[in-house]
């Protein structure tokens, strides 16, 4: 794809929340392309429980902003079928934790069709889904499951951490010819009822732009320790880096996409610092942090002095505040891990 340089965030005064930036990209693609439509529960009049479709109904009507029955197998599989016909549906799984009721459509149909058809059939759809905890919604509504989706081949996996990225990545996702899982963190959306931390609200240019998949963003340069992360934890890692400033010079990398994964940017940094801390809100075992450490070991073993990972321990996310706080990787956990590899 011919890549036009994206206009930088510095080109505008206007700031958006992540949800609005995401919606702006969807709106623009729907205006440009009749074949783009949105399906999900409560996406029409409600505008998405997490504001993922706020205002779209008014412009496009119920035919293109479709409320659907609580039948995730049916409508997500339906999106796969429409995509196989060449349309560009966006289907929303309200919480990623509900993947269990429709995983066959995702895993066996959406993800595998291109390969099983020897490349003769593609599935150009986007599966949007809300991820993450921090607000005591307990075991069935708080997961991120980044590793689960990234583990299964055939889907591209996108995790924006700022409004600027959310918009560019959504444009790229809709235009991509493959299935893209677009995982937005609830805490980052800028919802009036779930205040976001500093950081995700950024300047966002009005014109459409793409952010290419597989390009991590070095959020902060540093010489001593590399912290690699994504989603909400980009902001927590930046806060930790700030806290450590003067003591440890921390480089913070936002992966932005898990599939494809920008291994080179990670390795370049690790070659420089020799010390890697992988940070993730997903479960510790068999997940993103383990993968990052493995890639560092494979690609930069000689430069590697120390590694550490910060992730959710392998328990379902508990409800009560002290319990969720215990398992949620926090700023202090990152600070400690960075100190430990120093």
């Amino acid at each position: 794809m011919a890549q036009v340089e994206a206009p930088g965030p510095e080109t505008t005064d206007r700031e958006l929340t992540m949800s609005r930036a995401m919606v702006e990209a969807i709106r623009s693609e729907m205006e440009e392309n009749e074949e783009v439509f949105y399906m999900g529960e409560d996406v029409a009049d409600y505008g998405g429980i997490f504001d993922s479709t706020q205002g779209l109904l008014e412009e496009f009507g119920h035919d293109r902003v479709m409320d659907v029955p609580i039948s995730e197998t049916g409508f997500i599989g339906g999106a796969v079928g429409a995509a196989m016909q060449g349309m560009r549906p966006i289907a929303e799984l309200m919480f990623v934790d509900f993947f269990g009721v429709c995983m066959d459509q995702i895993y066996n149909n959406m993800a595998k069709t291109a390969y099983m058809s020897g490349g003769s059939v593609s599935v150009p759809m986007v599966l949007t889904t809300a991820v993450g905890g921090t607000y005591n919604d307990a075991a069935q509504h708080s997961g991120t499951l980044y590793g689960t989706f990234a583990h299964l081949p055939g889907m591209k996996v996108v995790v924006p951490s700022t409004a600027y990225d959310a918009k560019g990545l959504m444009h790229t996702a809709i235009r991509d010819d493959d299935p893209v899982v677009y995982m937005f963190h609830k805490r980052l959306m800028g919802l009036a009822w779930m205040p976001a931390p500093e950081g995700p609200k950024t300047p966002v240019p009005e014109e459409p732009y793409e952010i290419p998949f597989g390009e991590a963003d070095v959020k902060r340069e540093g010489e001593d320790v590399t912290v690699v992360t994504l989603g909400l934890h980009v902001h927590r890692a930046l806060e930790a880096a700030e806290e450590l400033a003067g003591e440890v010079d921390v480089e913070v990398i936002d992966l932005r996409t898990l599939v494809p994964l920008d291994t080179e940017t990670v390795l370049d940094s690790v070659r420089k610092t020799g010390r890697l801390v992988a940070v993730d809100e997903d479960y510790r075992s068999f997940g993103v942090t383990g993968e990052l450490l493995a890639r560092a070991a494979e690609g930069a073993l000689e430069d590697l002095e120390a590694v550490e990972r910060v992730a959710t321990p392998d328990v379902p996310i508990p409800y009560a505040r002290p319990l969720e706080e215990e398992v949620q990787p926090g700023v202090e956990d990152v600070v400690e891990a960075v100190r430990a590899v120093r």
Binding site: A138, Q140, P316, Y319
Partner: peptide, 8 residues
């Protein structure tokens, strides 16, 4: 023990 919450 506080692990479930109102839906569980």
């Amino acid at each position: 023990k506080g692990k479930g919450g109102h839906m569980h």
